[in-house]
Structure formats: structure tokens, C-alpha cells
């Protein structure tokens, strides 16, 4: 079992619901301090978004943050350098599009990411069918590969996707790109489909923008991923203090929910 999965299974065993914030790496010059603030406020793992020019699964908030990061010269190497100064022990998970990994060289990039503390990767345009070469490279460096299950994923494909996924399984709350949701949806069905096939920790993302939604999601799942809502706080000028407040409100909601179950 890879390091990430060991950590996340241990976390679940304690009864704590996982809070996983997402940051666009390099969107501001002090983004690493933002990550540290989130961990201080109760994040259990952190998604590090590596900005890509053509983010197909991302809505306008993350598109714009990615564009800013690219304008600031953000690259995989610059992110690795930034992360070398990070003072945190929670698992870091890269989230990016396949072309950046492919272009860097799969073995090289897996090694590079692992060196700076990244123990997992979410690559939303990499399907299970196409993931063979990446998996081999990631395996060699103890980087877990996390796959997504969508509400449209039929049960037989859920079995395929969850059996390929490592660390946790990412359940998308809705048929949408990131950051586009305003309403609340019931995630019971998609989470149940995952649970029926797998005992991996299951985290819900895409469409979690408020502590209330997070609380509802962890009533049936093991954690939540909060992306665009947090990226928006930073875009609006929020610094470490605002991030701590924002993450803290989610932490409280999850702890309250965890206490109920």
C-alpha cells in the first residue's frame, strides 16, 4: 500500500472526516504560506493544482487562477522549489492535466513530485484505460493515482475506476466542471456506488462550496475537497488569516458531523 493510502486509512480509523483544500500553485507569490495556513486551520491533506493552459474540467475561477499562475512563470520545477520550503507534514496531492506530466517525462515527473513531498496525483483527463504508462512511473516513486467517479459513471465502470484508484476515490457531486455549482445536491447515490465496489476512503468534490454542503457530504462519505470556493477567497485578496477562517469554518462543520455519526 502506498504512503498516501496508509495515511488516509489511518485518518479514517480515527473517525475524523477529511478536509482537503485545493490551491492553484503559483497563483500568488506566497501560495505556500497559504497552504500552511490551511493545514494550521485543520486541513488533512492538500491538493496542489499545477496550472495548465487548457483546464478542461475547470470552471472560470480556477481557469483564471491558472492563467495568473502561468503569467507569473509557474512551472513544475518552480512549484517543486517552492514546496521545498513548506512546513507541513500532511499529504500533498498534485492535481493537473496529463499533458504536463507527459511532456515532462512520466518517470522524471513522478520522481520530482515525490522528492518534494507529493504522494498522490489526480489527473482528470487521464482515463483508467490510458493510465498504464503513468501508473508504472507513479508506482516506481510511491505516488498514488486517484481516479474520479462521476454521477454518470455506471456501476460496472465504478468497479473499474475504484479498483484502479489508490489513496482515496474522488466522487464528483455533480455533472459539472469545478466552481460552477450554486445549489446543493444529494451525493448519497454516487457515494453509495463507490462504497458498493470499494472500501477506499471516499471524498466528495466538485460542488462543495459551503460548510453546510461539506457537512451533508460527510454524512455519507469520508471527506470533502474544497476547490473553487477557496481559490475565490484568495482571488479576492484573502491572505493567511482569511484562509484560516475559511478552512476553520469547514473544519467545524466536519467535526460537528463526525460527532453525530
Amino acid at each position: 500500500m502506498k504512503s498516501l493510502e496508509t495515511s488516509l486509512r489511518e485518518l479514517r480509523a480515527t473517525g475524523r472526516k477529511a478536509l482537503v483544500p485545493y490551491f492553484v500553485a503559483g497563483a500568488t507569490s506566497d501560495w505556500v504560506r497559504h497552504v500552511e495556513a490551511a493545514v494550521l486551520a485543520g486541513a488533512d491533506a492538500v491538493e496542489i493544482g499545477i496550472p495548465f493552459s487548457d483546464p478542461m474540467l475547470d470552471g472560470v475561477v480556477i481557469q483564471n487562477a491558472s492563467l495568473r499562475a502561468l503569467e507569473l512563470g509557474t512551472t513544475i520545477d518552480s512549484i517543486a522549489t517552492d514546496l521545498s520550503s513548506i512546513a507541513t507534514s500532511v499529504p500533498l496531492i498534485a492535481m493537473t492535466y496529463y499533458n504536463l506530466l507527459y511532456h515532462y517525462g512520466l518517470e522524471r515527473v513522478a520522481g520530482k513530485l515525490r522528492e518534494c513531498g507529493v504522494v498522490g496525483a489526480i489527473v482528470p483527463d487521464l482515463t483508467v484505460e490510458e493510465a498504464g504508462e503513468w501508473r508504472a512511473a507513479a508506482d516506481a516513486s510511491d505516488v498514488a493515482t486517484i481516479f474520479l467517479v462521476a454521477p454518470s459513471t455506471p456501476p460496472e465502470r465504478v468497479a473499474l475506476v475504484t479498483s484502479a484508484s489508490e489513496g482515496f476515490c474522488y466522487a464528483s457531486s455533480r455533472m459539472a466542471v469545478t466552481g460552477s455549482a450554486t445549489d446543493s445536491v444529494d451525493v448519497t447515490r454516487v457515494v453509495k456506488r463507490v462504497r458498493d465496489c470499494s472500501d477506499l476512503p471516499t471524498y466528495v468534490g466538485i460542488g462543495i462550496s459551503t460548510p453546510q454542503q461539506a457537512r451533508a457530504a460527510v454524512n455519507v462519505s469520508d471527506g470533502v475537497i474544497v476547490g473553487s470556493a477557496l481559490v475565490r477567497v484568495i482571488h479576492e485578496g484573502g491572505g493567511a488569516r482569511e484562509i484560516e477562517q475559511f478552512i476553520g469554518s469547514f473544519r467545524n462543520a466536519l467535526d460537528a458531523a463526525g460527532g453525530e455519526s
Binding site: 478542461m56 482515463t127 467517479v149 454518470s152 459513471t153
Partner: peptide
């Protein structure tokens, strides 16, 4: 190479 949501 598409999001899982589009695979079906």
C-alpha cells in the same frame, strides 16, 4: 483522454 464524467 477525457473527464470520467464523459466516458459513458
Amino acid at each position: 483522454f477525457v473527464p470520467e464524467a464523459l466516458m459513458p
